[in-house]
């Protein structure tokens, strides 16, 4: 029963052979598969992390440019408003100036017309006065005397106006 002899060597050799065989057939495939799966999971986790961080950076970038765009739009709108205001003022001023000029022109025209009408009226009045004077005097008056009498009369009439 308790017999020890050289057959120990058999067992040792057997066990070493079994170790090599199992390592080739069992451990390398199975452990390798587990390692490969771990690596695949790790790499997909890494990819997911990278995608996340990329997305976050992209989002930040977009928000930044959105902010800038909003600012720009405000600026554009205020500029446009200012310009519109200036143009409005300018047009109003021009209109005012034009109106003043027209009024002035109209006044000048009216003045000239009045002068003309007065001159006409004066000559008409001179003719009427002469006719009346001649009627009164009964004679035709001399042209030169007429003229000097006429001018004195008109000066009074004109002053009296």
């Amino acid at each position: 029963m308790l017999h020890i002899d050289m057959h120990i060597i058999w067992t040792v050799v057997d066990l070493l052979i079994l170790f090599v065989l199992l390592r080739i057939f069992l451990f390398k495939p199975v452990l390798g598969m587990i390692e490969k799966r771990k690596a695949m999971i790790q790499s997909s986790l890494d990819d997911a992390d990278k995608a996340n961080s990329d997305a976050a950076a992209l989002k930040a970038q977009y928000e930044n440019s959105l902010k800038d765009a909003k600012q720009e739009s405000f600026q554009i709108v205020s500029e446009a408003k200012d310009r519109a205001q200036a143009q409005y003022n300018q047009i109003i001023d021009k209109a005012n100036a034009d109106a003043a000029q027209i009024v002035q022109q109209a006044n000048a025209n009216a003045e000239a017309d009045r002068e003309k009408i007065m001159k006409d009226a004066q000559s008409e009045l001179a003719a009427v006065a002469l006719a009346a004077a001649s009627k009164l005097l009964g004679t035709t008056v001399d042209a030169k005397t007429n003229q000097s009498m006429l001018d004195a009369f008109l000066a009074e009439a004109g002053d009296g106006k």
Partner: peptide
């Protein structure tokens, strides 16, 4: 030994990730 080698060959046939 023979039994274990045969079983492990049969078990690891066609392994995928």
């Amino acid at each position: 030994m023979v039994f274990l080698v045969l079983v492990s060959i049969w078990l690891t046939r066609g392994m995928e990730v």
